[in-house]
Design a protein around this nucleic acid. Structure first.
Lengths: 211, 211
DNA sequence: GGTAGGCTACCGACCGATCGGTAGGCCATG
DNA sequence: CATGGCCTACCGATCGGTCGGTAGCCTACC
């Protein structure tokens, strides 16, 4: 059960196999939900029997845990760490939104969809651990909103509510977005930034928004 | 199997029993998810055996269908029909947001949470039917945004993106809101309206920042 | 260089429990 | 005595998980 991945850094094949299993399992769980996807089906999709799959994983629950942490790894690598150091708070928020949107729309990251959808599936310590990682991002957004208010770049709004409005607008995308639909990824990124940060009230100072 | 509810409008007792079952089943499915809540557990929560429950329902899937349609009934009654006739498009949207938020936060409406969470559980015709009802609301919002743009009350934004940002900000609430948490329902309603419709950019018309 | 030992990656068979669903009977009320 | 509302008892299928066993490969030792 995943001892190979604990090995030295020279080893490459075994961890790849494990990651491949995580990827396939993520696809299944993403399609059918955690409870809806059976170990049987996941094993079959991996080209294994149930017993063969259990050589690699501890339990179904732990499989979900690993998928979620892998998803959080990806998110922190591609979003959080990319924007944390941006000095300007508003630009930081706008960039975070762009990268966050792409994380949800890009169909390569099923793990993100699982994290978003299965928010109440885990329990106890494992749930706490995932939530702790999520909260890091939430607090990052809250701090950035507070900063942007302090610099006068945005209006005085409740940073907590603004954060959850931001997260809702962006994360909800997984529920309705279709990669081959009427709205493209780029269009969505620009549109979301425009609606959220551009505001809805008409500008008194005429500023041509059209492009 | 639910013949009673098909009866004439005069009958009252049987439909009440049926609605009670829907309510209890909704609570269970809301807590454990559709796949996670078994017919056994739902029956027990109703004070029935499994066979006893099956006297009232057709199947587990049809039970979910009925819960969702009941939820849509509630939503259309308490939100859509309440705001549709508001002449001013911006006020219409603000009121829709307020009522929509309360629909999600009010813990009485587990059916709404189920509709939001189990967006991909149903398949085929039943999914289509639910989605058709959902789309009525989506199109209502789109039209209202378009109208508000036409009247010049809000900036020229993409009505589709604005609609999904609205829906995301509001519907995402079910994932994080705690009725006894730091944020009250009223605070959330005002905060969301403020962030979404008040905009984030500072007003050029000098408005004192401190308060 | 043959072979013994050990290790990785896997399988078939099986476990008890539970799944959604049903057949047929029982009992109270009208 | 008929029906509504519910029960006991059961169905086949599947659930998550484990068992002993083994094919193939690598390494060590004689």
């Amino acid at each position: 059960m995943n001892q190979a991945v604990q090995g030295r850094e020279g080893v490459e094949l075994a961890p790849n196999r494990y990651r491949e299993i995580l990827e396939i399992a993520a696809r299944m769980i993403c399609e059918k939900g955690y409870e809806g996807a059976s170990i049987q089906q996941i094993a079959q999709a991996c080209g294994l029997t149930k017993a063969g799959l259990y050589y690699h994983i501890q339990s179904k629950e732990h499989l979900l845990v690993e998928i979620m942490h892998y998803g959080m790894d990806l998110f922190e690598e591609r979003v959080l760490s990319q924007v944390e150091s941006i000095p300007d708070p508003l630009e930081r928020l706008r960039t975070a939104m762009a990268k966050n949107v792409l994380m949800v729309t890009s169909d390569r990251t099923k793990e993100i969809t699982i994290i978003l959808h299965e928010h109440a599936t885990l329990t106890g310590d494992e749930l706490d651990r995932i939530n702790t990682r999520k909260k890091r991002y939430v607090r990052f957004l809250e701090r950035s909103f507070s900063e942007a208010i302090a610099t006068g770049q945005i209006r005085r709004v409740d940073p907590k509510v603004a954060t959850f409005a931001f997260l809702g607008a962006v994360n909800w995308i997984y529920k309705w977005f279709q990669p081959d639909g009427h709205i493209s990824e780029e269009q969505l990124v620009r549109g979301m930034q425009d609606v959220f940060f551009g505001g809805l009230e008409p500008r008194s100072s005429a500023k041509p928004e059209g492009s």
